[in-house]
Amino acid sequence: MSAPGGRREQKKRETRGRLADVAARLFAERGYDAVAMTDVARAAGVADQTVYNYFPTKPDLVLDLAEEMLERSRRAVAERAPDQTPADAFRELVHQDIDDFLREDPSLARGEYPAQSVQSDVLRRYALRFRHDQADAIAAAITSTDPDLPPLVARAHASVLVTVIQAVTDRVGAAVLSGTDLASLTEQLHIDADVALVDAAENFRATKRRMSAQTR
């Protein structure tokens, strides 16, 4: 038998997921800018405060996994193998994200982050602010694992990784909005992401070699 606390947590997760799905359907139909938090509450059949309890702000309805994404990318870099560059460590994350996009429910995809961050200028600003924070976190991880690199150099490499992620997300969002075949796009994105990340890895290694030569 499940413990009462476990059942409560399960119910909370289910409610949160249902509210997120309701919001995504509304965003898909009307666009992010045209939907209010109260609209989500009415469509879900709950009180306004219930929505706010799970999603304190409207952007949270789309960016609710932002902190998890940030921590996942930070740990990938901070806990990578000694022979890996930050870009090497990012490959699995990026390819997993690409495959996850393909598995999205088509009825919700137009209302979720990739599409809405392309369509809505308001949400775009929030998304880019998150990417800035993500780059800061990755840069801090690089500085901790490679203290010989100046912070500016670490931040530059972090920005490259975040740019790859955002470019993938934007291409998926644009494809969803235009009705492009996502299976074909996914195959190409895997190829393009590999090229970009291999290039970033080579640049990182070259930078490390130059810094090592300068300190001899």
Score class of each variant (00 low, 15 high):
Leu177Asp: 08
Thr163Met: 13
Pro114Asn: 10
Val162Asn: 07
Leu65Ile: 00
Gly173Leu: 05
Arg74Met: 01
Arg103Glu: 13
Asp97Ala: 14
Ser117Val: 09
Pro82Glu: 15
Val77Ala: 04
Val162Trp: 08
Pro114Thr: 10
Gln116Thr: 03
Asp146Trp: 07
Ala109Glu: 09
Leu63Asp: 05
Ala109Ile: 09
Arg74Gln: 02
Leu70Arg: 15
Arg103Asn: 08
Ala156Met: 13
Lys58His: 01
Pro56Tyr: 06
Asp105Glu: 13
Ser144Val: 03
Leu177Ala: 12
Asp60Arg: 10
Tyr52Leu: 14
Glu112His: 05
His157Glu: 10
Ala47Asn: 12
Leu123Gly: 05
Ala140Phe: 01
Ala89Pro: 00
Val160Trp: 14
Thr143Cys: 04
Leu128Pro: 01
Ala109Tyr: 11
Thr57Tyr: 05
Asp100Phe: 00
Ala158Cys: 09
Ala47Met: 00
Ala174His: 12
Leu123Tyr: 04
Gln84Val: 01
Ala158Ser: 15
Val168Lys: 07
Val168Tyr: 01
Glu67Thr: 08
Thr50Phe: 03
Val172Arg: 12
Ala66Ile: 00
Asp64Trp: 14
Ala141Leu: 05
Ala76Ile: 06
Ala139Phe: 07
Thr85Met: 02
Leu108Met: 06
Ser159Met: 05
Ala141Lys: 08
Ile98Val: 15
Ser159Glu: 15
Glu68Val: 14
Thr163Tyr: 12
Val164Thr: 10
Asp121Tyr: 00
Pro114Phe: 05
Val77Gly: 03
Pro59Ala: 06
Leu63Thr: 04
Ala154Arg: 08
Phe101Lys: 04
Arg91Pro: 00
Glu92Lys: 11
Phe130Asp: 06
Gln49His: 09
Ile165Met: 13
Asp64Lys: 00
Ala139Val: 06
Ala89Lys: 00
Asp88Pro: 01
Ala135Ser: 15
Ala140Arg: 13
Val122Arg: 15
Gly111Gln: 02
Ala115Tyr: 11
Pro86Asp: 07
Gln134Cys: 09
Val94Ala: 15
Ser117Ile: 02
Ala78Met: 04
Gln84Gly: 01
Thr50Arg: 12
Leu65Arg: 15
Asp148Trp: 03
Arg129His: 12
Ile138Gly: 06
Gln84Asn: 02
Ser120Asp: 08
Ala174Met: 13
Leu93Val: 11
Gln84Lys: 03
Leu63Lys: 05
Asp121His: 10
Ser178Lys: 13
Gln49Asp: 10
Leu102Ile: 03
Leu65Glu: 13
Pro59Lys: 08
Leu61Pro: 06
Asp133Phe: 07
Ala115Cys: 10
Ala156Asp: 11
Thr163Asp: 14
Glu68Cys: 02
Ala109His: 09
Ile142Cys: 06
Thr143Asn: 01
Leu61Glu: 04
Ser117Tyr: 01
Tyr113Gln: 12
Leu152Cys: 00
Leu61Val: 06
